[in-house]
């Protein structure tokens, strides 16, 4: 019995000693818990081609994802994992793609810049209108020292009246010109009557008088400076100038 006690005591001591010795040693870390096999992470990319458009134009968004269950693009909604779609943003937009999968969530963005059309709206139609004006509205030519509209000028005048009636916002100036012959003061008065003759013919054809300004240049600003009838005829005219 006594021996058994001693044995127990010895064993306890030994154990204690062992434990003490063991306590003085560095504790060995416990082995890491075994990680569960990780599911593969998703990947995502999105691009816009072209990425700069003018307002009103469209662009193509293309995206690709892998390992994703839910793929969505802000403003579009859920989409196929990979695909492409035409969009027509009104303003510059950042398309945000989110790809969610078991392995996590991946995001990607594509920026589409929308620019204003290069010719701003007001000048664009105006320039064309002015071009159309100068192409369509024909000057009216006169006989020497005359300010009545010649019969061969009636078709020009009708064309002018038609254009000016169709473009009712256009205001314009009729310049009266004369050839170099004759006297400065009389030619200025004659030029006035020429411009007024064209104006009153247009007014009769239905063009509002308040759209028309007249001015006389007499022989002060000739179109042609040679001294022959061909040139003089060029200078005897009612000349249309677009004003707005």
């Amino acid at each position: 019995m006594k021996q058994q006690k001693i044995r127990w005591i010895t064993l306890v001591f030994m154990l204690a000693a062992i434990m003490m010795v063991a306590a003085c040693k560095k504790k060995t870390p416990p082995p890491p818990p075994p990680a569960p096999p990780p599911p593969p992470a998703p990947t995502a990319s999105i691009s816009a081609n072209p990425n700069t458009i003018q307002k009103g134009q469209s662009t193509t968004l293309s995206w690709q994802t892998t390992n994703a269950k839910d793929v969505s693009i802000d403003g579009i909604g859920a989409v196929q994992p990979s695909g492409s779609q035409q969009v027509t943003p009104a303003d510059s937009t950042t398309y945000h793609l989110a790809a969610k999968g078991d392995g996590g969530t991946q995001e990607a963005t594509a920026r589409v810049t929308v620019t204003a059309p290069p010719p701003p709206p007001p000048p664009a139609p105006s320039a064309t209108e002015e071009e159309m004006f100068s192409q369509s509205v024909k000057d009216i030519f006169f006989d020497y020292d005359k300010y009545n509209i010649r019969t061969d000028q009636q078709s020009s005048l009708q064309g002018d009246a038609q254009f000016l009636s169709q473009h009712s916002s256009v205001t314009f100036i009729i310049e009266g010109h004369c050839d170099e012959r004759g006297s400065t003061e009389y030619n200025l008065a004659l030029g006035t009557n020429r411009a007024e003759a064209v104006k009153s013919a247009l007014v009769q054809a239905g063009v509002a008088a308040n759209r028309i300004k007249t001015i006389s240049y007499g022989k002060e600003k000739p179109f042609c400076t040679e001294s022959n009838e061909q040139c003089w005829q060029q200078n005897r005219r009612g000349h249309f100038v677009y004003s707005k």
Binding site: D145, Y147, G182, S183, E185, Y186, L188, A189, L190, T192, N193
Partner: peptide, 27 residues
Amino acid sequence: KGPDVSPTWNRKTGAQIAFVSGRTGLP
């Protein structure tokens, strides 16, 4: 009707005016 231009006064009397008119065609 027609251009009337270039008046000049009778410098002696001031009572008449001469001028140019295209009322019948050539001035």
